[in-house]
């Protein structure tokens, strides 16, 4: 049972962590928390199933195509839901516009793809039991993503530009950084990361149009715990959440485990609204 808790918990935790990173990536350049994060995860599963099972494409083609398509969705989100309301951040209109876009994505999927969960193919055909690939693929995807992001943010000028825009948008603009293009780039990147989460976790989550809100909520918890924009916090928070949820699942039963997660979430949020490693509030007057 312990092995099973660990395997499922880490797998789900890695998916949540990746969705958390998706939130963070969009937030960094735009200060927007986007409801589309969970939908990108959902699309990863649906695209994967569509390309590999319905169209019969091999993994090496299907995965890049999935990431590309989701990156495009990310860019469209930036154009439709983020850019028009950036100027009026005071009113938090972005909550509404990204919610609307997230719903449009979800309902379009429901209409085009169907409302029943569809199977997701085995990707590599490796492992059985608790070593089944469906348990470790998300963890591997999460590790690769974190490694890639660390390289990007630490070693490349492009990554530094992302950091600069995230830290001080105005100074970055004054310096002549292409802030707008960087923002679009970060939305494309977030799209790919979100889809990777859904793709890697596809065998657990299936290709199901209604996965979005669930991933939204459980992917947001690591962000809330780790503090906005903190990717390492999101990974730790995500894995902890996954393990906690599965442990509660096995001990007190599935339904009440969600109640436990929610209660814990509220308590932590109220006790530390900025996250456990969060930043301070800004001056208001």
């Amino acid at each position: 049972m312990l092995a099973s808790i660990l395997a499922t918990g880490l797998a789900m935790g890695a998916v949540y962590a990746l969705i958390g990173i998706t939130y963070n990536t969009m937030f960094a350049t735009s200060r927007v928390m986007s409801f589309t994060a969970g939908q990108l995860g959902m699309l990863g599963g649906v695209f994967g199933s569509l390309l590999m099972l319905r169209w019969g494409l091999p993994l090496v083609v299907a995965l890049p195509l999935t990431l590309l398509a989701a990156a495009l969705v990310g860019v469209v989100t930036e154009f439709v839901a983020v850019r028009p309301v950036l100027r009026s951040l005071e009113q938090h209109l972005y909550v509404l516009t990204t919610l609307a876009v997230a719903l449009i994505i979800q309902q379009t999927t429901a209409i085009e793809w169907g409302t029943e969960p569809a199977p997701f193919p085995r990707l590599l055909g490796l492992g059985e039991g608790v070593w089944h690939e469906k348990y470790w693929l998300p963890v591997v995807a999460c590790a690769i993503t974190i490694g890639g992001l660390e390289y990007l943010y630490r070693r490349t000028l492009l990554g530094h530009a992302f950091i600069a825009v995230a830290e001080d948008n105005y100074a970055a603009r004054a310096l002549g950084l292409p802030e707008r293009n960087l923002r679009i780039g970060s939305y494309a990147l977030a799209g790919a990361i979100g889809a990777l989460a859904g793709f890697a976790g596809g065998q657990l989550l299936l290709a199901f149009f209604a996965n979005g809100p669930l991933l939204n909520f459980y992917g947001f918890i690591p962000v809330a715990l780790g503090g906005l924009g903190n990717n390492r916090g999101a990974v730790i928070g995500g894995l902890a959440l996954g393990l906690f949820q599965q442990a509660a699942n096995f001990t007190v039963g599935g339904i009440f485990s969600s109640v436990a997660v929610f209660t814990l979430f509220i308590i932590v949020l109220l006790a530390a609204p900025q996250g456990l490693f969060g930043a301070t509030a800004s001056r208001r007057v």
Binding site: L157, H160, L175, G176
Partner: peptide, 8 residues
């Protein structure tokens, strides 16, 4: 890197 960013 601050300076390199200025030459982005």
């Amino acid at each position: 890197d601050n300076l390199l960013l200025a030459g982005y």
